[in-house]
Design a protein around this nucleic acid. Structure first.
Lengths: 285, 285
DNA sequence: GGCATTACCTTACAGTGTAAAGTAATGCCG
DNA sequence: CGGCATTACTTTACACTGTAAGGTAATGCC
């Protein structure tokens, strides 16, 4: 079995030990040479480089630390585990959300998490299904649960809301970052991008309006398509739209959750999924 | 400036022409040698390979087509444009949603899109901000707008709902795919994964319950943590949870939208973003 | 018949994660 | 105190990625 790297990260207990062991957790008197590298140092420089360059590469981290890429493998199982550890660490930047009402606190929490994910774009690479279960992520989650505690949202729905908010923050952060990258490169601003696109559409798909009447009506009457509006160029229109979209999504989720429309999960962990059977109209082959 | 590859895809009008030009769009009598490769063929094999192997690599596509990787660049500007074209093409797999009520139709639509994104995991690589504006994506969007037309949701909120649903589908599909990959590798099923994780937590973070009371209460009283329930092993627990999470998120979004809590965007394209200024309590530095 | 145009090929480069094996420093144990 | 297992880190290497630069040959227009 030459496969020594398991799944997303390493040994389950190993990663958790790395996440939770405090500063004085180094077992004294080991046999080998004195370690010049330390896990906190590795994580700090990895985060710094990843934030700066926009990507996480073992060689780049190693270069900054004046060692080889392979040297990192003594402290970290693989790249995935490194990302997990970085992910949890930056979550410590989240502060306790403030606000008069629980909605304000949730909004504050959402804004913080969104900003965190925008700052650290590489977070998008960390797996969604398996929680990292480190102190940072856990504390962030705890803040949200505390804010939701007085909302009256049933605990079954709270889990859905929590996951949806985390997901929305990821999605929103990615949109914001992509909005920042693209337009400057083509030397045209967002408005011109849309105008060029629309002109090309009119040329190659002349029956567009007839084929997609609902879209046409929505973008004509309303404001959705930036090309329809008149705005001074140079404004980061796309990023503004992305931020706005995030705020409104959070509002939508909270409005839906407080309505009590979504029934709480009934019994065991599998019972909730019973209504998602192959016969349900929602499930499509 | 050695940067010759612009943004996500190539020339804006170029990509749109490729997207919308029908089968008889080839200009007759060109001067060079007869082309043996064709764009539809490239896209088809690229989709097939990407679906099979889970990733999109120019060399793999070229190998299957018995040509070199560079040969693809005659038909496609770069990898990003190839992905855009593939993305739009597979959206033609979406059928007109059926159902008695508009909610059922939206649910049917959501389930189809989720399944599409699960089938084609590489869709997650396609940019979020810039719509591809091809016939496939556009028709998919039109289906949703048609279903939402009779919902009574104000058109300003409809845009938010649309973006949130697309985002939720992406997020959900990624979770489902990740849930499928991970557990088999560790040779333990999902339940064991949780149990090991929890055991490690109890060892390295003995004050976990005191530190995170809200999380503890929620996972103890409710069903959230799969480790708490008793289930036959071998069941794809994580994937079931991910599917369930998606369904409930869709319900939440629709419930929130029909409530009319989210006010419609007032005036111009910039006016909607005015309430997201730096002074707003939602915006955090 | 010459020539511009075009489709595809060859080579090359700068990256990526990480497996395998080597080197040297350290502290435990006799 | 000497030997040795243990450990931190290095060296080399491999397979793989997108794509820039330049070459070759087939085609249709003049």
């Amino acid at each position: 079995m030459p496969v020594t790297t398991y799944g997303g990260s390493g040994d389950p207990t190993r990663t958790i030990r790395l996440l939770w062991s405090g500063p004085g957790a180094a077992p004294p008197s080991r046999r080998g040479p004195k370690a010049v590298l330390s896990l906190p140092d590795i994580l700090d420089t990895a985060v710094t480089i990843a934030d700066t360059t926009g990507r996480v590469s073992l060689r780049a981290v190693a270069d900054r630390l004046d060692c080889t890429a392979m040297a990192l493998y003594t402290h970290v199982a693989n790249r995935a585990e490194l990302l997990d550890l970085m992910y949890d660490r930056v979550h410590l930047e989240i502060d306790s959300p403030v606000g008069a009402s629980w909605q304000e606190r949730v909004n504050h929490w959402s804004a913080q998490v969104l900003q965190l994910y925008v700052r650290h774009g590489w977070i998008g690479e960390v797996s969604l299904v398996r929680p990292v279960l480190g102190p940072g992520e856990q504390q962030t989650l705890e803040y949200l649960l505390e804010a939701l505690a007085t909302s009256g949202i049933p605990s079954g729905s709270q889990i859905t809301v929590v996951a949806a908010l985390f997901g929305a923050a990821r999605q929103g952060a990615r949109m914001i970052r992509e909005a920042r990258q693209a337009p400057a490169v083509t030397a045209t601003d967002d408005l011109r991008w849309w105008q060029e696109r629309m002109a090309a559409l009119a040329e190659f798909a002349p029956d567009f309006d007839q084929r997609f009447p609902y879209f046409t009506r929505l973008t004509r009457s309303s404001v959705a398509t930036p090309a329809a509006g008149v705005r001074p160029s140079g404004t980061p229109l796309m990023e503004t739209a992305a931020r706005d979209q995030f705020d409104r999504t959070v509002d939508l989720l909270l409005a839906g959750a407080t309505q009590g429309v979504s029934p709480a999960v009934p019994a065991g962990p599998g019972a909730a999924a019973a209504d998602t059977g192959p016969g349900s109209p929602r499930t499509v082959s």
